[in-house]
């Protein structure tokens, strides 16, 4: 049973290139409003771009520390079951970074996971979340990234196992997990909850780590934010839903303070990748941290493995 299914998937993966050709067309460029670089900088922190795209501080490509948060040279490695991904250079260098990109190139990368040459990006780059971001925020972000130092540095190719090394196969994946829908506020809910939802689901891309993945590597919507094995094999990423196995015992104030300080209600420190995420969250306004907390308390509680 499993084997035919697998064969079927691999076939679909390999044939994906055919679908790909028809899948991408950019929306017509609208007359450009002047970008708000200040907002772009804010979105840069809300999105935690630097956590992955700045260079690791030591010689080890998976060092948890970053070197210079504003030099987005890439080179960090993510070692997963699919193989090793290398994070790209998104500094404004024209040759090795994204300095030559137009606004539409940037929008396509962030919302459709497609490079200016038309290649698919692997979803280790969390475009399944970034597709929720507003066009305005994305263009502001691009304008801010353009102000950062250009650093020439060529990043190694991803080192992935078959069939994942066939990029065209990603079209199938995208068919399943990309719907191209920008976040729409829910008029039934408060402005605060909507703001929190936008930050968590869009730029914050919390679910990319905290939501478990299904068998095809997409976020399992039924278990949203319910905790997941670390894709790098280093333990379990916490359940952040209001369930007793998650952060049900945390108050909104606990969440706000943890995002501000990196300290949990039990006095422990947030570790690993979350330490970098938290450092970015600490740069947001208190109102935004409160919105995130309110939203996290409002999502459906999911049971995960018990806390140790």
């Amino acid at each position: 049973m499993l084997r035919p299914l697998l064969a079927c998937l691999i076939t679909a993966w390999l044939c994906g290139g055919v679908l790909q050709a028809s899948a991408q067309t950019a929306p017509p460029a609208s007359p450009a409003a002047k970008p708000n670089i200040k907002n772009g900088e804010y979105i840069f922190y809300a999105g935690g771009c630097t956590s992955c795209h700045s260079a690791p501080s030591s010689g080890k490509c998976d060092s948890p520390r970053t070197k210079d948060d504003l030099k987005l040279v890439g080179g960090r490695c993510l070692k997963t079951d699919f193989g090793t991904f290398y994070v790209s250079n998104i500094s404004p260098d024209r040759e090795t970074g994204i300095g030559g990109w137009s606004n539409e190139d940037f929008i396509n990368a962030m919302m459709k996971g497609v490079s200016p040459r038309g290649d698919n990006y692997y979803p280790a780059f969390p475009y399944a979340s970034y597709q929720r971001m507003t066009r305005g925020d994305l263009l502001d972000l691009k304008a801010y990234l353009d102000t950062l130092p250009a650093v020439a540095s060529k990043v190694p190719e991803h080192d992935l196992s078959f069939p994942y090394n066939i990029r065209s196969g990603l079209s199938v994946w995208k068919g399943l997990y990309l719907d191209g829908k920008t976040f729409r506020p829910d008029p039934q809910k408060s402005a605060k909850l909507n703001r929190g939802a936008y930050l968590v689901e869009g730029p914050g891309h919390c679910g990319e780590c905290h939501t478990p993945r299904d068998s095809l590597g997409g976020m399992d919507a039924a278990k949203k934010l319910g905790g997941a094995p670390d894709p790098e094999g280093k333990g379990f990423i916490p359940n952040i839903t209001p369930h007793q196995t998650g952060i049900g015992s945390w108050s909104e104030k606990d969440i706000v303070y943890a995002l501000e300080s990196g300290l949990t209600p039990s006095g422990d420190s947030m570790g690993g990748a979350m330490a970098k995420v938290q450092a970015n969250m600490a740069k947001l306004t208190k109102e935004d941290r409160e919105a995130i907390a309110a939203y996290l308390k409002s999502v459906p509680p999911i049971a995960s493995r018990p806390k140790t």
Partner: peptide
Amino acid sequence: HDDYRAPEKK
């Protein structure tokens, strides 16, 4: 903790 404490076990 980053350098010297392992994550909680799976």
